[in-house]
């Protein structure tokens, strides 16, 4: 395993490639280009158009005639003062701030136990990475069952403290959010574990031994040798989880549907509800477009940093 800190050969430049290769290159990349165009350009233009109107599937007009419901930037003005939206943004951030570090430290801790060989390593490894491969919707249903007030989680707690426990996890606003976070941590800690283990294994063994021989203890070795060498990997792992956590929907929606009330409503859940229940698509398009713009800026900045 290695981090690609030295890119292979730089991609050939147009000047160095013969004409037949250039032609084939264009043909080979064409399908991907069309698909991207199809998903990026048209939808974004459509989104932009709709977002400037009050159009809804129930408005009785096909969408090309949405201009009849023109309302300028009203949707954008509305979203600035949409308290339910901003609380969904805050809640998404909260889930991220809690879940990503917990997943990171649990994953790192587990990874550190798996660096050298021991009996049962391969089997344990295979079992521990299973959750991330479970279909998220199914994982949502698993936790829906587990957190029923007469369900097994309460049963386990009851056994531990010696008297019956009846906690209504999913109908208590705070506990529902906790339950959703637990499900996310269960499912995605393995991903951190997997990536960080790959990073730890990639730290040169000789350097760790050299540090040991120079008198560094385990923590010092980790801090001064392993951690700096894993920097890129850690950034990638964190970035992946932050991105995914921002999108969080499947597990959560199956467990709570965003409820009780709006207690577990995240950005994706909120948009989903406005799209399918309130049907004010012009407004949804405005929200979605703002998200796209913010994320694009983040992506470009991140790519610039990574390139350096």
């Amino acid at each position: 395993m290695s981090v690609t800190d030295t890119p292979p050969a730089p991609p050939p430049t147009a000047a160095s490639v013969p004409a037949d290769a250039v032609r084939l290159g264009h043909w080979l990349t064409l399908p991907a280009q069309i698909l991207i165009l199809f998903i990026a350009v048209f939808p974004i233009l459509m989104q932009l158009y709709i977002s400037l109107t009050d159009w809804s599937p129930l408005s009785g007009r096909p969408w090309p005639r949405a201009w009849e419901l023109w309302n300028g930037f009203a949707n954008y003005a509305d979203l600035m003062s949409d308290r339910r939206l901003w609380s969904a943004v805050g809640r998404t951030a909260l889930v991220m701030i809690v879940c990503v570090p917990v997943q990171f430290f649990l994953g790192l801790g587990l990874a550190m136990l798996f660096v050298d060989d021991f009996r049962g390593k391969r089997l344990f490894y295979s079992i521990l990475i299973m959750p991330m491969m479970v279909v998220p919707a199914v994982a949502g249903y698993m936790f829906f069952m587990l957190f029923q007030s007469g369900g097994p989680i309460n049963d386990i707690f009851g056994t531990l403290i010696g008297r019956p426990v009846v906690i209504a996890w999913l109908s208590d606003p705070t506990l529902a959010l906790v339950a959703v976070m637990i499900a996310d941590i269960w499912q995605w800690t393995p991903l951190m574990f997997l990536i960080l283990l790959a990073g730890l294994v990639g730290v040169p063994d000789d350097q760790m031994k050299a540090a040991t021989l120079l008198g560094a203890n385990a923590w010092q070795r980790f801090r001064t040798i392993a951690l700096p060498r894993m920097k890129t990997i850690i950034i990638i792992a964190l970035a992946i989880r932050v991105i995914e956590n921002f999108k969080i929907f499947d597990t959560l929606y199956i467990m709570t549907s965003g409820g009780p009330g709006v207690a577990t409503e995240t950005i994706s859940v909120y948009i989903y509800k406005v799209t399918t229940q309130d049907l004010i698509w012009g407004y949804v398009a405005a929200i979605a477009l703002v998200i796209l713009i913010v994320l694009s800026v983040v992506a470009v900045l991140a790519m610039r940093r990574m390139a350096r």
Partner: peptide
């Protein structure tokens, strides 16, 4: 052949967007 130099960034962005937003 170095074709499609725009693809890496475009695809990263595609990966980044929540499906809900499109």
């Amino acid at each position: 052949f170095g074709s499609g130099g725009n693809l890496p960034l475009a695809l990263i962005q595609l990966r980044l967007f929540p499906p809900m937003a499109v």
